[in-house]
Every structure is written in structure tokens, then in C-alpha cells.
């Protein structure tokens, strides 16, 4: 039998999350998702499938959206990460969050943090997208409740010049 999991040496990383610096001890196989949820208790990032197919765990890593279940924690040493908890400042909703709330784009809400962060990364690159462009941009984020209708409309409301 190999080593029991608890005895394997941890790695030290330094990472900035939502503007705060953290020095953390992470396990070599630990995912970024696990680090956020289990170590830092930033539970706004959700695990839907754990294998990169649903997008619920989306966070922004150095400006790009990633499925945090597919990134290993040791890889983010030296990076800047934005999670859903870092988006609203002093309790005021970010415009994307506001649009999702106002357009009824949130039902069960499990996909919402990932969708909101995907939208943020997408609009930063393409501030005036068309409806088909929006649909393709969020195709990596599954939602079972809304049929995407009000999500697309919320994003379109932000995309207008």
C-alpha cells in the first residue's frame, strides 16, 4: 500500500484572492475549487460536476475565466483570482449582478456565480456582443432552471452601447 493521503507533503503558495493576499499550504492534488471551498471557505464558488462540464465553479484567474475544478491549487502560486465574493464592493452589487437580479436571471442560483463571472470575463473582451455571441460565450455554463432566456436578456442589457 502507498502512503496514506494525509502524509503527503503540502506545497506553499502565495496567491491574491479578491484583492487579499494569502499564503497557503495546499496538497499537490488539490484543485483550486477545493482550496477555495474547503480551505478558505469561499463557498460562493459551486461544484456542479467536478469534471469541467458544467461551469458552476468558474472563477477568474489572472483575467481569464477557468473551471476551478480543472486547475490544481499549486498552479495558482503568484496569481490573482477573482471569485464571486469579490465582485460586489461594500455590499453594492456589481452591474452584472444587478442585471441578473433585475432580469429574473436567477432561479435556483447554483449556476449564477459561475455565469456572472463568465459574463464578466466575456464582456471585458467583447463589450458589445450580439445575441448569438452571448449564447456561445456562456455555452460552457449549464443552467437547468431558466432556459437561459432571462440570462441572455440580462447580458444583452449590459451589452448595449
Amino acid at each position: 500500500m502507498g502512503k496514506t493521503p494525509g502524509t503527503i507533503k503540502k506545497t506553499s503558495i502565495a496567491v491574491t484572492i479578491n484583492g487579499e493576499s494569502h499564503e497557503l499550504e495546499v496538497k499537490p492534488w488539490q484543485t483550486l475549487l477545493d482550496m477555495l471551498r474547503e480551505v478558505l471557505h469561499l463557498t460562493g464558488t459551486k461544484e456542479g460536476c467536478g469534471d469541467g462540464n458544467c461551469g458552476a465553479c468558474t472563477v477568474i484567474l489572472d483575467g481569464r475565466e477557468v473551471n476551478s475544478c480543472l486547475v490544481l491549487a499549486p498552479e495558482v502560486d503568484g496569481s490573482e483570482i477573482l471569485t464571486i465574493e469579490g465582485l460586489s464592493v461594500q455590499g453594492v452589487l456589481d452591474p452584472i449582478q444587478r442585471a441578473f437580479v433585475d432580469h429574473g436571471a436567477i432561479q435556483c442560483g447554483f449556476c449564477s456565480p459561475g455565469l456572472i463571472l463568465t459574463t464578466r470575463a466575456f464582456l471585458a473582451e467583447n463589450p458589445h456582443p450580439t445575441e448569438p455571441e452571448i449564447r456561445v460565450a456562456i455555452a460552457g455554463n449549464l443552467c437547468r432552471c431558466t432556459g437561459y432566456d432571462k440570462i441572455v436578456r440580462a447580458i444583452m442589457s449590459l451589452a448595449r452601447p
Binding site: T45, L87, Q97, I106
Partner: peptide, 11 residues
């Protein structure tokens, strides 16, 4: 809007 929507939007 749903009363809990902001809680869900902010994680």
C-alpha cells in the same frame, strides 16, 4: 424580483 436573488448573485 426574487427576494433571495441578491444572496445568490453574490455567493
Amino acid at each position: 424580483p426574487r427576494v433571495e436573488a441578491a444572496d445568490k448573485a453574490t455567493g
